[in-house]
Amino acid sequence: MDLRTVNKRRFKAEYAWGYLFIMPTIIGLVILNIYPLFDTLVLSLYKKQGLVGMKYVGLENYVKLFGDSLTWQSTLNTFLYVIYTVPIGIFLSLILATMLNNKIRFKSLFRGIYFLPIVVAPAAVTLVWKWIFNSEFGILNQFLNLLGIKGPVWISTPGVTLIAAAIIGIWSNIGYDLVMILAGLQSIPGTLYEAADIDGVNAWQRFFYITIPQISPVLFFVTVMRTMNSLKQFDTIYLLVDRSNPAFRSTQTLMVQFYIEAFQKYNQGYGAAIAAWMFVIIMLITVIQFIGEKKLVHYT
């Protein structure tokens, strides 16, 4: 056997193994993701007929979707939720991580405590906070009463409920961002700071000109994660308000609207249209974020 044949055989074997190893995943992705992507788009062109039928209606679902003020309200709510949770959440995590990144004791303990909300289910967490936010008997308003402030009816005042949901969202996710940012902070080479000290740089300048750029990849990552999670937030909003709640319209996000239409009212065509709309929004935001990455993130 000459070398060429041996090599050919080896390559063929390698190809075979390669395909074999990736086959389950690829087949899975095709069935679970590629096909569904097209199926959703096709479905969005159909409308429920009676109890079990589907009828082709072209773009009618989209016309209805964008003509319904509820859709725009949901979209607005979704954006508001992101705006409430992402900047404040990351800001707080950044501060906490910076604080932790000092020569203090009990670092692991603190880290463990802040990370705790991450491991427990959002469903359970939301129920606990629902109780805390209860306007007459919840501990938050009772506490505010002590300070002489009359707390709002958190869960059924339009506008306020979304803020309550945001508070829950921030509380639940600080730990994750904190851990990430802390890891980023800890990987900044000390030499950079030493060089800065020699140059007589003050603390603010250290922070803005060294620390932030050094951890900008982590900050970017955390921002993307947080934004994506907030856009797709379902559990908290769904459990906080139901249809008979006066604050429902001002709190419902696109994800909740999607679920209600597709799986409670069983309008799968209309639900698919909502999913498509969410897809467009998320893609747009992703593009914006990547443009931001190019401009603001400093990779060493």
Binding site: N134, S135, S156, T157, S244, N245
Partner: peptide
């Protein structure tokens, strides 16, 4: 009120 009933 209904708001109170939403709470409890």
């Amino acid at each position: 009120t209904p708001q109170s009933f939403a709470d409890v």
